[in-house]
């Protein structure tokens, strides 16, 4: 089925391309999803002093590695964006796949972390700290997976030089996922 974008898509009354505007609104709606979750967690964390003890069982090294990985992948996607502006298709393609690789490493570390924690008996049911831990990191992990899939799809268009502006849109989303992790890291791994 052939699909032709409507004229509406090409209009830009605000001066921001429609795709980027939509990504900003998506991020605003994501802020409230993660915000609600983090606010609930934080309240429980402050209320129950014993949660500090639970938090000491999270793997800080793994969390730190993941922070580093995500920061680096953020750099890669912004370099891909820069390459896309310079119409350097090959370079943009390469950096998108570096970013996807970063996401993959992140998920592997996460999988290792989950495995060891579950092996130690810290499952979703252990107590509410672990409930929130799995919920928040799991939701964040889903966002990482979604971002990787979208990047995988657009990378081949980018290689052909089609719709290069999408690199920027996915980049903005990816940085947001990074920022969420920047807050989850101290919340679950550092503050003890």
């Amino acid at each position: 089925m052939s699909f032709h974008p409507p004229l509406a898509t090409s209009r830009s009354m605000t001066g921001i391309p429609t795709g980027r505007l939509a990504v900003w609104w998506i991020i605003a709606s994501e802020i409230v999803i993660f915000g609600g979750l983090i606010a609930s967690y934080l309240l429980f964390r402050l209320h129950y002093s014993e949660w500090a003890e639970y938090a000491s069982h999270t793997n800080t090294v793994a969390g730190a590695v993941n922070t580093f990985v995500l920061l680096t992948s953020s750099l890669f996607i912004v370099l891909a964006h820069q390459a896309a502006i310079e119409k350097n298709k090959e370079k943009a393609f390469r950096f998108i796949w570096f970013t996807i690789g970063g996401g993959g490493v992140f998920l592997l570390v996460k999988a290792y972390e989950y495995t060891t924690e579950i092996a130690h008996g810290y499952t979703l049911f252990a107590n509410n700290f672990w409930g929130f831990y799995y919920l928040a990191t799991g939701l964040h992990g889903l966002h990482v997976i979604a971002g990787m899939i979208i990047m995988g799809i657009i990378s081949f268009d980018v290689k052909k030089g089609v719709k290069l502006e999408r690199v920027e849109y996915i980049g903005v989303y990816w940085h947001f996922v990074d920022i969420v992790w920047l807050f989850l890291f101290p919340l679950f791994y550092i503050a003890k």
């Binding site: 605000t14 001066g15 921001i16 900003w24 609104w25 991020i27 605003a28 709606s29 802020i31 409230v32 915000g35 609600g36 983090i38 606010a39 934080l42 309240l43």
Partner: peptide
């Protein structure tokens, strides 16, 4: 554009309000 920042601030403010 500046209004994007305001949109994001608003979302954050609502979360502070919820808190």
């Amino acid at each position: 554009k500046r209004f994007i920042r305001y949109i994001l601030y608003t979302a954050l403010l609502f979360m502070i309000l919820l808190f």
